[in-house]
Amino acid sequence: MIRIAIVLGSTRPGRLGKAVADWVSSRASERGDATFDVLDVADFRLPLLDEPLPPSLGRYSQPYTKAWSEAVDGFDGYIFVTGEYNHSIPGALKNALDYLYKEWNNKAAGFVSYGSSGGIRAVEHLRGVAAELQMADVRAQVALPLATEFVNYRTFIPTAAAETTLQTLLDQVIAWARALKILRPDHAHGKEDASAA
């Protein structure tokens, strides 16, 4: 079974992203073609990147890095839930991405964003980061403008259009995650987990 992580990128108190991630998780759990778990960056309390060696070496020294690595590594794809901060992604999300490398490689990535312009500028930056980390980003994107998807700019109530677009995003992420599996060493050397057999 394909495993997808819903990565909640904002760590601010009162963040709007929590309601968005919960919605993605709820809709995703109704499907039978993959399993989904929420990875909340806030739960890992990562300081600004402080590993002495480049992440591409995979030689981590800090316990929080090892915990983050273990959490991220077991998934076949990711749906990033991100706000837009100053035309880009939250610093906490960028930092969390920068901590790792191989854990992200050859996996699918999709984006659910929110903000005054739906978070589209944040995702434009995030696509470039994902490409450098060798993630394959899907075309579909759920962009949630504060004026139309949040009552009084605070309470998240997704429109029918958002609901439809989310299903398209899920379809694409799952399909790409399945297709990319063959590129990863664990699959290529016959070390697939028992659930995939």
Rank of each mutant, 00 (worst) to 15 (best):
M1K: 14
R3K: 15
I4V: 15
V7W: 08
L8D: 00
L8R: 10
G9D: 01
S10Y: 00
T11R: 07
T11V: 15
R12C: 07
P13T: 14
G14K: 10
G14W: 02
L16D: 03
A19C: 05
A19K: 10
W23R: 12
W23P: 01
V24C: 11
S25F: 05
S25V: 02
A28D: 02
S29A: 15
S29P: 01
E30D: 12
R31H: 12
G32K: 09
G32L: 11
D33T: 11
T35H: 13
D37A: 15
V38M: 13
D40Y: 09
V41I: 14
V41Q: 07
D43A: 15
R45C: 15
R45G: 15
L46W: 01
P47H: 12
L48Q: 13
L48E: 08
L49T: 10
D50T: 14
L53T: 12
P54Y: 10
P54V: 03
P55N: 12
S56I: 12
Y60E: 14
Y60T: 13
T65C: 14
W68P: 05
S69D: 14
S69Y: 07
E70M: 14
E70R: 15
E70W: 12
A71M: 11
A71F: 08
A71S: 15
A71Y: 06
G74L: 11
D76R: 07
D76I: 08
G77R: 00
I79Q: 07
T82C: 07
T82Y: 02
G83D: 02
Y85T: 06
N86A: 05
P90Y: 11
L93G: 04
L93W: 00
L93E: 11
N95M: 05
A96T: 01
A96K: 01
L97A: 03
D98H: 06
L100Q: 08
L100D: 03
Y101F: 14
Y101V: 02
E103R: 07
A109N: 03
G110V: 04
G110S: 07
G110T: 00
V112Q: 05
S113P: 06
S117Q: 00
G118Q: 04
G119Y: 06
R121F: 03
E124P: 04
H125T: 05
V129I: 00
A130N: 02
A131L: 08
Q134C: 03
D137F: 06
D137V: 00
D137Y: 02
R139M: 07
V142Y: 07
A143Q: 03
L144M: 07
P145K: 10
A147S: 13
T148L: 02
F150M: 11
V151M: 09
V151N: 03
V151Q: 13
Y153A: 13
T155G: 09
I157L: 12
T159G: 01
A160R: 08
A162G: 10
L166T: 00
T168P: 04
T168A: 01
T168V: 06
D171F: 00
Q172D: 10
V173C: 09
V173F: 02
I174G: 05
A175I: 03
A175D: 03
W176D: 01
R178E: 13
L180F: 00
L180W: 11
R184K: 12
P185V: 08
D186F: 05
K191G: 11
E192H: 07
E192I: 05
A194Y: 06
S195R: 14
A196I: 04
A197S: 12
A197I: 09
A197N: 06
